[in-house]
Computed example of a mutant assay.
Amino acid sequence: MSLMKSAIAATLLSLAALSAPAMAADEYNTSSGLTAAGSPLGLHGVDPVAFVSLGNRIDGTAQYTAVHDGVAYYFASQEAMDAFTAHPDQYLPQNGGFCTFGVSVGKKFDGDPQFAAVVDGKLYLFLNEAIFREFQKDQSGTITKAEANWKKIRSTEATKL
């Protein structure tokens, strides 16, 4: 390989390392592919600030994108993006955005924003309507079990359906 090709290959490898997400594998539930920000999309593109602050599922837009821990989040407005940037922990979905009920039983399933709850100011997502209904039967017990299990399974591979 010529010296020029070696230099180009080294540069590309360096750039790839710089753009790699700052997260450990599978700690966040993200959509496949990358956003224009170069990171995978979290929360299926739904604005987490609107969810937590208003209790309303509002789709964000790529125009307002913030990246946290290697995951891109979309927002409906500059104000929402600024609020998230200032205090991301107030708005991030719990359990990395995976289904809270699944995490409570030691599994990592997709968390769908169509089936979500804000409990004590925290956002919890669920796989589907049936699982969400199960959560509603024992919210505090499910959340407590999920918190304990999340520490154990946080960096494990997501469950394949």
Rank of each mutant, 00 (worst) to 15 (best):
E134I: 01
P88C: 07
S2H: 11
S39V: 07
T35I: 07
D59W: 15
A17G: 12
K152A: 08
F135T: 00
S2L: 08
A37H: 03
F75L: 12
W150S: 03
Q139M: 01
A72Q: 02
G38P: 13
S31E: 03
G42N: 03
R57Y: 11
H68D: 10
L161S: 10
V49M: 01
L127V: 04
S32D: 12
Q78F: 13
K5H: 10
T85V: 12
A146N: 02
S32C: 14
G55L: 11
N149M: 13
Y91M: 06
G96V: 05
F98T: 01
L3D: 03
A146M: 03
A158E: 04
A24T: 03
N95F: 08
I8C: 10
F98Q: 02
T159R: 05
A80R: 00
S140H: 08
A50F: 07
L43H: 03
E129L: 06
L3K: 10
K137H: 01
Q63R: 10
C99N: 03
T35M: 10
S2E: 02
V119K: 05
N29V: 10
K108I: 10
Y64A: 08
L92E: 00
H44V: 03
A158R: 14
T156H: 13
G33C: 13
F126M: 02
P40Y: 09
K122C: 01
H87Y: 09
V71T: 04
L43N: 01
K107P: 05
L43F: 06
L161E: 14
R133C: 00
V103T: 06
S2W: 09
A76Y: 11
E129V: 01
L3P: 05
A83V: 11
Y74Q: 05
W150I: 15
T142I: 08
R154E: 00
S31Q: 09
A116F: 13
V118F: 13
F126N: 00
Y124M: 00
D110R: 13
L43D: 00
D26A: 14
A148H: 13
A9H: 11
L125T: 00
G141A: 09
K151L: 14
K145V: 09
N128W: 09
A86T: 05
D69I: 05
V46L: 09
G97M: 04
